[in-house]
Design a binder for these strands. Structure first.
Lengths: 229, 229
DNA sequence: CAGAATCCCATTCGATACTG
DNA sequence: CAGTATCGAATGGGATTCTG
């Protein structure tokens, strides 16, 4: 550990990228480095291990992930926690403030999805898809719906509770859900929900629950309209 | 102009930073490079020239600004326009889609402003301050207010129309405003509005309009509560 | 598996100088 | 004014290796 100044990665506490009182500029100091916002996205539905994050972020290297986690911890967005024994593994978890970033992340996604250039067929992480439900739900239509829906995507299990025009999603066993989807990977499900690919064209997808229920569920989601041009 | 591959700035149409169908990831491909989102912020209240942008973004270099403008144009966020003679200067202007980014930029700012580490005393551009009015307005309180407020910050003139719980801001002469603020720079006004610095402690600030009117105006803005920790 | 430490090249940045 | 051109310095990030 040398003591030269300037040795530290600016990722550290950058704080001096922009010299600007604007909240957006400060937000960018915290979440504006490459990958940072996507790391936060992956933590949005609960704590994750280093290797979980790596697996969900195709292309990120161990070095960069380490640096981003350090930066985000220093900024107060997440904390590193040692799970109690047995297990005793280390996980990363959003702070209260970190959790509050969801609307900002959502708005950016909603805006970007309106571009004709957005390619929804790329790979997609399970968390990404689950969060998108909250972004893309049509709250008017959802107001008339009340149901619990389970999702088993690979080894990740989520429960979505729809009611009162709102939708909550959390990691939980899918037992007790009236409708349950099981798929090996998220893009498959995305095809069903957003691509409106018929279920029988997706052989690797298992669905438990009535046809009518499924229809009512699928009906409340839609991508935002593409902008002109 | 050599024809080597890889010579092009990845800023170009990067499109391959993240390989991720998530809308947020695509949003980051477009606005996630350093400075990009702040350039868009500066254009949010109308077209600006190259030198205007440089002046509003302390620290950006001509090179980087050129690169960002190219990237944003290619992505469809802004267009370059030749103003009709006389004048015949070149300006940059958001597209319909670019204009729609306001909520995303706002949400990031609103979130960041909740950090105890946010320093609101740094420099601030006029546009930044004007946009913050839309972000920080308390719509409940504003519902009872109906007025036009003018701002003259250096050479930038804005008119804010408050009514129906909403606030619109645009570049316009301040004639006809019931209340008018004039200041050499934005931070001064920010101190008055958000810092609740008393007006008589700000000698470089001119205010035209009744004391009571001014009080009702200032009352509808406040920074979001800081988060615990 | 969860990182820390090294190595090293490609990219990016900012400053300065230059141009139509 | 609106950029280009160039250059040295800083940074970024992939690959690899090492450790507990």
């Amino acid at each position: 550990m040398k003591l030269q100044k300037g040795t530290e990665p600016s990722a550290a506490l950058h704080g001096k990228w922009y010299d600007d009182a604007c909240g957006t500029a400060f937000g960018l100091e915290v979440l504006g480095e490459r990958w940072s916002m996507l790391v936060v996205r992956e933590l949005m539905l609960g704590s994750r291990r280093f290797s979980d994050l790596r697996a969900s972020l195709p292309g990120i290297s161990a070095k960069v992930l380490t640096e981003r986690l350090e930066g985000l911890e220093r900024a107060g967005v997440l904390v590193r926690r040692q799970l109690p024994p047995p297990g005793k593994v280390q996980v990363y978890e959003l702070t209260e403030w970190g959790l509050l970033a969801e609307p900002a992340i959502q708005e950016l996604g909603r805006w970007a999805a309106r571009s004709p250039r957005h390619d929804p067929t790329l790979p997609l992480s399970p968390v990404s898809l689950m969060l998108s439900l909250r972004t893309m739900v049509d709250r008017e239509k959802a107001a008339a719906v009340q149901m619990n829906v389970g999702f088993e995507i690979g080894d990740d299990h989520f429960l979505a509770e729809i009611g009162g025009g709102n939708i909550e999603v959390r990691r939980a066993p899918t037992t007790g859900a009236e409708l349950r989807f099981r798929a090996p990977a998220a893009p498959l499900l995305a095809g069903l929900i957003y691509g409106k690919v018929p279920a029988d064209a997706l052989p690797w997808l298992e669905i438990e629950g009535g046809e009518e229920l499924r229809g009512r569920f699928l009906d409340i989601f839609q991508l935002p309209p593409k902008v002109g041009s």
